[in-house]
Design a protein around this nucleic acid. Structure first.
Length: 288
DNA sequence: ATGGCCGACGAAGTCGGA
């Protein structure tokens, strides 16, 4: 910090405002009209996307470039897929992370001995001095599913990779759909989730161990109602306020002190053909 | 109050999501 202060005094470090956002769009091709409208309205410097459901080759780059956004993306079509959009530069992109486990193989669909397959759930890049990760944590499906063990293993491996990343990049932001509600306050009715994924002690412990590396779980304000980021499409859950906060922005201590406004853009969940998730927007000060 | 919605894939019905 003293070194940074000295560089700042010498004029080689400048503080700048970064509007950083994360949004599980549930298919970028299907969501492009909403995403383009949202970018033009909210004007984030950086947007992390999850569930893009599009390969890197088919990524709709041209329409985003017209709004001034460069991108890095990784995807497999059909499901999963992550990306980062930035209008303040993108450097040093990495896909996945060391030690990342693969998804369980459905026995009926694969020959015996088939190796678990890596999914496209993590991408990182440096944007204006901030190391940004866009993460899509596995769902887990049910407590007795192999996919639940995969979720926990994936989070444990992520923690190990992030521990190394944090020592190299003090200004570090972990953004995305964590598929974990950090506390009972983060679901509309804790009783309704007993026996379900997203709220178990194991999942919350895995998230807590990530936080204990030195991150703050930014608490965004709600535009209306409780500060949830996800509402199921079914049964009018959104209009009944029956949601969850599972999309998170975790900021390293070097960034957490510079947070200005932080909010969940509930309006993006309204209207025609919305994603089932709302974007989380965080204004922060970073230094270059 | 997860049967009930939505998207992908592919061209009808499943799967996955959380």
């Amino acid at each position: 910090m003293q070194a940074r202060a000295a560089r700042f005094a010498a004029g080689r470090v400048s503080m700048h405002r970064v509007r950083l956002a994360t949004w599980n769009v549930n298919s970028l091709p299907a969501r492009m009209p909403r995403v383009l409208e949202w970018l033009a309205r909210v004007q984030p410097e950086v947007l992390c996307l999850q569930e893009t459901k599009v390969t890197a080759e088919a990524f709709p780059a041209a329409e985003l470039e017209r709004l001034g956004y460069a991108h890095v993306a990784d995807g497999e079509g059909g499901r999963n897929g992550v990306a980062i959009l930035s209008r303040v530069g993108l450097e040093g992109a990495t896909r996945g992370f060391p030690g990342e486990p693969g998804a369980p193989i459905t026995v009926e669909k694969a020959p015996a001995g088939t190796a678990p397959s890596l999914e496209r759930r993590a991408i990182a890049a440096t944007c204006a001095g901030v190391r940004v990760w866009s993460l899509y944590v596995p769902n887990g499906r049910s407590l007795d599913s192999p996919h639940f063990a995969y979720k926990l293993a994936w989070l444990a491996a992520l923690r190990a990779a992030i521990e190394a990343e944090l020592s190299a990049c003090p200004q570090l932001a972990l953004c995305g759909d964590f598929n974990v509600a950090p506390s009972d306050r983060d679901v509309w009715d804790p009783a309704a989730f007993i026996g379900s994924t997203h709220v178990t002690a194991e999942e919350r412990a895995a998230l807590e161990q990530l936080l204990q590396l030195g991150f703050t779980d930014v608490q965004p304000r709600a535009l209306k109602g409780a500060p949830f980021t996800y509402w199921d499409y079914r049964a009018g859950m959104f209009h009944r306020g029956m949601g969850m906060r599972i999309d998170l922005v975790l900021l390293s201590h070097a960034l957490a002190g510079g947070v200005g406004d932080a909010y969940i853009d509930r309006d993006a969940r309204k209207g025609s053909k919305p994603s089932d998730h709302a974007p989380v927007v965080v204004d922060l000060d970073a230094s270059v």
